[in-house]
Amino acid sequence: MDQGNLKFTKTHEWVGVEGEIATMGITDFAVNQLTDLVYIELPEVGSNCEAGKVFGEVESVKAVSDLYSPVSGEITEANTALVDDQSPLSDDPFGTGWITKVKMSNPAELDLFMNADDYRKFCESEAH
């Protein structure tokens, strides 16, 4: 996905919107922080997620980290290919490394997020 069309959270998730469906993933900054990913647990299709709440988990360097959902709604798809091979999360985090698709229940939540330029500035401030 073109990063210029994405929205970003302070917890380093990205969201791309097509109609009422939001595609979500974690950013390259997050993946670099996590280093080598070895496991991912995805939410079940048909379950609901809530903005700011945990929707999945990843493990890297013996560290398990929660993944936070940027938006609320119903999970319509999960990228199950990542369960066996996590490399797309690091190789192509904004493309084949997508994690879930969500039918949004409150699209106004998107207004809270950063655009790509603001997110880059945020990451720079986090890194220092």
Binding site: T11, V61, K62, A63, V64, S65, D66
Partner: peptide
């Protein structure tokens, strides 16, 4: 000695 971590809301 070996160690492992859990990260939650930025805390570890």
């Amino acid at each position: 000695l070996g160690s492992a971590q859990r990260r939650r809301r930025g805390a570890i």
